[in-house]
Amino acid sequence: MCTARRRSPWLFHMNSGSCNGCDIEIVAALSPRYDAEQLGVLLQGSPRHADILCVTGPVTRKAVGAVKTVYDQVPGPKAVIAIGSCPATTNVFIDSRTLEGPLDKHVPVDVYVPGCPPRPDAIIQGVAKAAEILAKRGNNPQNAEPVVTFVGEVQP
């Protein structure tokens, strides 16, 4: 079961007000050059089918409710990846009054993929890390606490 969880991460991509940069890089990660399907990654159309929620963008006021709803719709065990600097810190849009970010105010975030935008290889690495977390987490409610990791951090 752990192996299956690690080897089959299905994503649901959600744009919470991003500038498109990260979203296009997610799509590029599926393209022939990077081909995330090698890791079993599939982009799913419905959040109910997904394991990992990929959020881009600084979470605008209009998007907050939708982020929470979609997070609740993803069946457990689940993980959340914040792709790009926007969901992590709201980036250059900091102190805009129409933003409700950063993302971790609203849903627990497991993996941060920093960059503006991150490169597709970093995104794939983030997905791989999230899949590891997912495999460890399982259906055990005690493991539901977010495991905060960063792509690109130096392993001790």
């Binding site: 744009n15 007000g17 991003s18 963008g57 600084p58 605008t60 006021r61 209009k62 998007a63 939708a66 849009f93 805009s96 009054r97 129409t98 933003l99």
Partner: peptide, 8 residues
């Protein structure tokens, strides 16, 4: 529209 409104 307006889901991306960041008030830039």
């Amino acid at each position: 529209i307006g889901f991306n409104f960041r008030n830039i």
